[in-house]
């Protein structure tokens, strides 16, 4: 089950990281706005919540950690 979750997290990471940079920026997150039923404010909140070290970019590790926390709830 752990591996399935990681695979899913990575799929989602790739949806956000459309250019395949290997990290997600605020702009990448805001680009999802037309596709997801979340406001820009909510997307910003998601970004800040996932960006554990606050450096302005989300690594696959930060993204996966956030996803696993959600998954375990």
């Amino acid at each position: 089950p752990g591996l399935t979750m990681l695979g899913k997290a990575y799929e989602f990471f790739q949806i956000c990281d459309m250019e395949g940079k290997g990290f997600i920026t605020r702009q990448d997150m805001q680009r999802l706005h037309p596709e997801l039923p979340l406001s820009l404010e909510e997307l910003e909140k998601v970004f800040v919540t996932l960006d554990a070290d606050g450096n302005g970019s989300l690594t696959p590790k930060e993204f996966t950690t956030g996803f696993s926390e959600f998954f375990l709830l």
Binding site: L36, L38, E42, K45, T49
Partner: peptide
């Protein structure tokens, strides 16, 4: 505790975000 409230809200937004991604993956025709 305001911090706990903020945490709960973040969790709600995160859940909303990931659920939306889930339905985006599976929901489109």
């Amino acid at each position: 505790d305001p911090n706990m409230k903020a945490g709960a809200t973040s969790e709600g937004v995160l859940a909303n975000f990931f659920n939306s991604l889930l339905s985006k993956k599976t929901g489109s025709p």
